[in-house]
């Protein structure tokens, strides 16, 4: 049984009956963390798309770093949500019986779309040539790992590589609205709660998006700086 001492402490100050939610913040630090992490994902992806779609040459060295940052934070973004559930072992119910009117249930599908169709695919197409080369060069477990990551497609002819590049570009073009959808939807989860006047606003998705772009680009810049300074060595991210 969870610790209830704070509830009893509060009960001394009231006459009669109160609800526990009168004295507890039910969405606490973990729920704050989750839109923050998703925002970093969306922002990092926008930075990557700057190079691919809008041809901003200056950010080219950060392209792969930005994609990998997005993937890393995408994978851990559900963790704070999961650990905030009172019954974390029942999380599968969201996927098995999603309630279509619930913004939270539909976010599961937005998340899956972004992770599977946008991020993983783009990274796979971008790294496919490298996976094939590495699987030939390395030994032991690394060789096995890279062979699995090639998904058994070892064709790295000129034509295949050109197709990969076209695929990456197409996915990035789909990916920009998807990144907006991903984080705008997080804003919608909060903005659709009419009961809370501080949240209930149509501007919520926009507010979330802009803070996401700012914080995501800042994060990639920070990681780029740190990874080049400590240990001091040449920049090696995607300079080709």
């Amino acid at each position: 049984m969870p610790d209830q001492s704070h509830l009893y402490e509060a009960l001394k100050h009231v006459v009669g009956y109160i609800y526990p939610n009168d004295i507890e913040a039910h969405w606490s630090i973990l729920i704050v963390l989750y839109p923050y992490l998703t925002g970093l994902v969306a922002g990092a992806f926008i930075l990557a798309s700057l190079e691919r779609v809008f041809n901003v040459r200056e950010v080219r060295p950060t392209y792969r770093l930005a994609l990998l940052t997005a993937l890393a934070f995408m994978l851990i973004a559900p963790l704070p949500l999961l650990s905030h559930l009172a019954k974390p072992l029942r999380f599968w119910e969201i996927l098995v019986t999603p309630h279509l009117t619930s913004a939270m249930a539909m976010f599961g599908f937005v998340y899956m779309w972004y992770l599977m169709v946008v991020l993983l695919l783009e990274i796979w197409f971008d790294y496919r040539r490298d996976f094939v080369v590495w699987s030939r060069e390395s030994k032991g477990f690394k060789k096995f790992l890279y062979s699995v990551l090639t998904l058994g497609v070892t064709d790295i002819s000129e034509k295949a590589i050109r197709f990969d590049e076209a695929a990456v570009k197409t996915i990035t073009i789909i990916g920009i609205p998807s990144a907006f959808l991903l984080h705008g939807y997080v804003g919608f989860i909060f903005g659709s709660i009419k009961a809370n006047p501080w949240w209930s606003s149509v501007l919520m998705p926009v507010i979330f998006l802009f803070s996401a772009i700012v914080s995501g680009i800042a994060l990639v810049m920070l990681i780029y700086l740190l990874s080049n300074k400590i240990p001091p060595r040449q920049a090696e991210h995607g300079v080709s």
């Binding site: 599977m116 197409f125 998904l151 058994g152 497609v153 064709d155 295949a160």
Partner: peptide
């Protein structure tokens, strides 16, 4: 291209596994 047909196969498998689950 072989990449695409392989991906279609994998996504189809994931989709079927999801529906079955």
């Amino acid at each position: 291209p072989p990449q695409v047909s392989r991906l279609i196969l994998i996504f189809a498998f994931i989709g079927v596994a999801f529906v079955a689950t």
